[in-house]
Design a protein around this nucleic acid. Structure first.
Length: 281
DNA sequence: CTTCAAACCTGTGGGC
DNA sequence: TGCCCACAGGTTTGAA
């Protein structure tokens, strides 16, 4: 998502919108005022910046509101030459007064979406009102690791579930959760009440490290849908240590990586480096 | 209030 | 070759 944000910063910030078109029922399901309102309020406005918190992106406008986006599973923002042929999963397009490249939102699986939201102050930062519940992510200058560790430990659940809870710390999804747990040598089913403060600190530092390395590689493109604004994939997938590596040797100890069902998806871990806690099944 | 599982969606790929 | 089903992901919803 950060890779996409950087692309938006470069390609659309500062430009004035000439026209907006939206397709698909689900694209604006979070914009309760509907498509006409969406189009009317964006037309003629200028994108003032490109921001991100966790997996949410937003483009503040020059009127105190913002275009908020979530890529879901398969959402893409693409900068394409004006009037280029429409792709199959085109959901929205913006043209600009300068007649330069258009901005397009594509989404195959439609878990992503767009909305307009007013910017409100939360904890000293302007954020779209509808995502005020999302915690700061580890790349945020205002991120407070001790506070995040406290938040994780305040739950009565397992470590991986807490790590995926975007109201405690944001930006960590299934891939980076597994990678962070592997680095910290922790098993995801450990109850948080048995996670020491020191372990929590190491775990968050590991997550931060994974995300920073992934960003340097241009992102994690485990799927051809994960592309930047120019349609290019990142290269971090080849650096993953556990995610998607079931039955292949752990890069630390050679033990075959295990894959287990977890919340309608999968968890990957090294059974030797990350032994299951005694009490968990 | 907290926690959890189901629902949302579509393209891909394995098994038969 | 073609069909069917499992699977991938993140967030919201409603139930417990």
């Amino acid at each position: 998502v950060e890779t996409v944000r950087a692309g938006l910063q470069r390609w659309v910030v500062g430009r004035r919108i000439k026209s907006v078109a939206v397709a698909g029922e689900r694209t604006l399901r979070r914009h309760v005022a509907g498509a006409d309102d969406f189009v009317a309020r964006l037309t003629g406005r200028r994108f003032a910046a490109a921001r991100r918190r966790g997996k949410y992106l937003w483009l503040p406008l020059d009127d105190g509101t913002s275009l908020l986006a979530h890529l879901g599973m398969s959402g893409q923002f693409l900068a394409v030459p004006a009037n280029a042929a429409a792709g199959k999963h085109l959901r929205a397009r913006w043209t600009f007064d300068d007649d330069g490249p258009e901005l397009r939102f594509h989404d195959q699986r439609t878990f992503g979406g767009l909305a307009l939201a007013e910017l409100v102050e939360a904890d000293g930062t302007l954020v779209p009102s509808t995502i005020a519940h999302i915690a700061r992510d580890p790349m945020d200058p205002g991120f407070d690791p001790d506070r995040a560790v406290r938040a994780l430990r305040s739950r009565r659940t397992e470590v991986k579930r807490a790590l995926l809870d975007q109201t405690l710390v944001s930006g960590i999804g299934n891939i980076y959760a597994d990678e962070a747990l592997w680095r910290a040598r922790l098993h995801g089913t450990r109850p948080v009440e048995r996670l020491t403060r020191a372990q929590g600190t190491v775990l968050l530092a590991s997550a931060t490290e994974v995300m920073a390395e992934a960003l340097r590689a241009g992102g994690t493109s485990f799927d051809s849908l994960y592309v930047n604004i120019n349609g290019q994939s990142g290269y971090f997938e080849r650096s993953l240590n556990v995610y998607g590596r079931g039955d292949r040797p752990c890069r630390r100890c050679g033990t075959p990586i295990r894959r287990e069902p977890f919340m309608n998806r999968s968890s990957y871990f090294c059974p030797r480096c990350q032994p299951k806690p005694r009490s968990s099944r």
